[in-house]
Amino acid sequence: MALTVKSLNADTSFLLTFDPPAAPLSSPGLFPGSFTILIDPWLVGPSIILNSVFSHSEQTTKPSISDLKNLDREPDLILVSQDKPDHCHEATLRQLPPDCESTILAIPSAAKKIRSWKHFRPEFVHALPRYAQGDQQSIHRIVLPPPTPRGTCGEVTVTWIPAKRDLSKVHHAIGITYRPPCTVLSLLSPMHYIDLPMSPPPSPGSPMTIASSPRTIVPSPYNDREKTISVIYSPHGVSYDVIRPYASSYLVSESALPLTALLHSFDCVENPWWLGGNISAGSLGGTEIAKNLYARAWVSAHDADKDNRGWAVKLTQIAQHAVDEVKRGLEEGVVRKKLSNTEVVTLGSGEHHRIIVG
């Protein structure tokens, strides 16, 4: 089983490809049971907030593709995490045909904006509910059919976890999990398939347990159910305290820890309070999440150089952090070396990083 993270614009437009265990490494996303998610596509034109005098942003790195029609195939899901134009970019999304069959999931304000364009069929555009611990209706679920009639279904879930009292309205996380559909060959009759039983709920010691500190999640040495790939996407960052209820309940119950990948900014971006204050939490916030969830990989998001102009960016301050600095932050205070083995990755336009989950 594998997750491939591909950057389309070296910033925060990603294509995530989830592959089941049987999928060959040579053709990600094309095997039965594979699933693709396109995140916040921005490939052409500027990003303008209100008007060019207020905020005008252009990419300085050429995207790997200039048109969403150039993707290998139509994505299964399009995820829009904000209503700001560098995440919810109309010109780019309109590259998809009106009869596109990709499901579009967006936070409520972005879903409202996308519907107002009247470009996509409304039944394919869905607003993500706010996550509430213990409320199964606050998690959007997509069932993946099995490759054979006697197999078991897989599942993709998407969860929106916003911060409270967020003046800038950019600090939230999107939680994603992928459990592949399964088919198992019978040992008694290799030409016939058998059904797998439904995964039981986790016992108190499996697969993860909450340690005495309420802020720490500790891996259990036992795991009695199949692995689930998990991703946290938070390009502007969010406090770990916001994510913790989701991690300590849902991710634990789904056997989805350690976290497979964290997509989070390295750089810290600050505006005056009256312009939103902190815009990007940077490596400090990401380090807290990566350490507590034992992330296998941390991929830089929203850190690309851009040509930013306008009144709104004149007072913006950016503290950049290189890969080595981020690694040092992850190693500080770690007692057991194996818990600091998070891969720290920056992806150029068109580059990808593949994570194998055993």
Rank of each mutant, 00 (worst) to 15 (best):
V80W: 07
E226D: 11
I174Y: 07
N341T: 12
L43M: 08
A322Q: 11
E351A: 11
A2T: 15
F35C: 11
L251I: 03
I161G: 04
D303C: 08
I232A: 11
H171D: 08
G237R: 02
I176L: 05
G175R: 02
P20K: 05
S13H: 00
I289C: 08
I104S: 00
Y131K: 10
E254R: 15
K291Y: 15
L105S: 02
T260I: 07
A110H: 03
Y250R: 13
T159L: 10
A111M: 09
S26G: 12
T159G: 10
I174W: 06
Q317N: 06
A91M: 11
L16S: 12
V170R: 15
R309K: 05
A132V: 14
L293F: 00
S47W: 00
L43C: 09
K118V: 02
S47H: 01
G282S: 01
V156W: 05
A23R: 00
H119W: 05
A256D: 01
I318F: 01
P245C: 08
R94G: 03
I161W: 04
V323G: 05
S186E: 00
V357Y: 03
I142W: 11
K62M: 13
S102H: 04
S248I: 04
T177V: 10
S220N: 02
V313N: 04
T342A: 07
V242D: 07
S213T: 14
G282A: 01
R328C: 11
N9K: 09
A106Q: 03
L275H: 06
L128Q: 03
A247K: 05
C153R: 13
P149C: 04
R165N: 15
Q320E: 15
G151C: 01
E270I: 10
T159D: 10
A295M: 12
F31N: 14
P181N: 03
P146R: 01
T60E: 09
T103W: 04
D307A: 15
P85G: 03
L50M: 13
P200I: 09
I142N: 07
H321S: 13
E325A: 10
D11V: 01
Q59E: 12
L330N: 04
S300I: 04
M191H: 14
E325Y: 07
H172M: 13
